[in-house]
Design a protein around this nucleic acid. Structure first.
Lengths: 165, 165
DNA sequence: GGCGAATAGTTGAAGCCTAAACTATCCCGG
DNA sequence: CCGGGATAGTTTAGGCTTCAACTATTCGCC
């Protein structure tokens, strides 16, 4: 049974900023569709989760190690979130902690050799999945989409500035 | 002892799938940026959450009521998830349950008058927020993006068919 | 030196989410 | 009519996530 999605259900909403809403719902649907599939496969094939994978990816890009705070900023999640994630990954033997010698509050995380091997496997598969899911787009479509999403990101950031600060 | 650096690791990955990955990451970033802001505002201005809002939106579109199962399909979340969400919304007095007269397993959910009023307020604000965040795009950009995301959705669904069924 | 502000990280409470096991009910074919 | 398979919903265990309150440490400054 094919599930409905938010966008399909929008068929009959009242007038207004309708186009923007429709665009947002479609954006959300696309992302959720892909993300759900990636989570499913990470779970099925590697018995892991997207947040764990993302954390490992950060460490892979910074072999010298990252502090928990740096990780939380890069992943755009809260500090407390990283605490728990790191604890689970450490218990699995994929990352190791090291208290900073110059700042006893800080500790940096690094991949263990096993973590590095494990992430390499996951990462290769992940890249293939994404390519497979986006295979229906032509090169020029992908390029155009990439550009428009860049414009969207800029628009959103501008919108955030306005209200906040 | 010399660890791989990020560049080396990138160079090792199979060719051609880089663009797809980049596109996916940008799509994810855009969605997360918007979604986080909407969650923040729903919380700050209405003391509610996105899942609650989404569930109310489903009921608003179907005044005759929806069963929990229909809601879970439309929201693309699990059954158990809706059970909890519905319980919280019922406790807040925004929705009411009614056991089906023809099928004693099923119960349908409807907005209460208060739920309808409350959702109307939230919905109007929500639509404005989305329009505001996407205001930096021109009409033609929005249209092009909408079209490309439609193509993307089709590509992803095709990719899902392949593996599963 | 020492005090107050800032920073790094942890913890706890609460909500969201899933998969899997479970209960209750319905439906259908023999 | 009745037994098995499908369906509606709940429950449970576990993970993710945030916010707010907390501890420990460092830094700036007098």
């Amino acid at each position: 049974m094919m599930p409905l999605d938010a966008e399909t259900a929008l068929a009959d909403t009242p007038p207004g900023h309708k186009d923007e809403l429709r665009l947002w719902l479609r954006l959300l649907t696309c992302t959720n569709l892909i993300e759900a599939e990636i989570r499913r496969r990470l779970r099925a094939e590697f018995d892991t989760t997207l947040p764990r994978f993302d954390l490992l990816a950060q460490l892979e890009r910074h072999p010298a190690g990252l502090t928990l705070g740096e990780i939380s900023r890069r992943m755009m999640v809260s500090n407390g979130n990283v605490t728990g994630l790191a604890a689970r990954l450490e218990e699995e033997g994929l990352v190791e902690r090291r208290v900073s010698t110059t700042d006893r509050r800080a500790q940096s995380l690094r991949l263990t050799p096993r973590g590095r091997r494990e992430f390499a496997r996951q990462s290769a598969a992940h890249e293939g999945w994404v390519a497979e899911l986006l295979a229906g787009l032509s090169d020029s479509e992908r390029e155009a989409l990439h550009r428009l999403l860049g414009r969207t990101k800029a628009s959103v950031r501008a919108g955030l500035q306005e209200g906040g600060t």
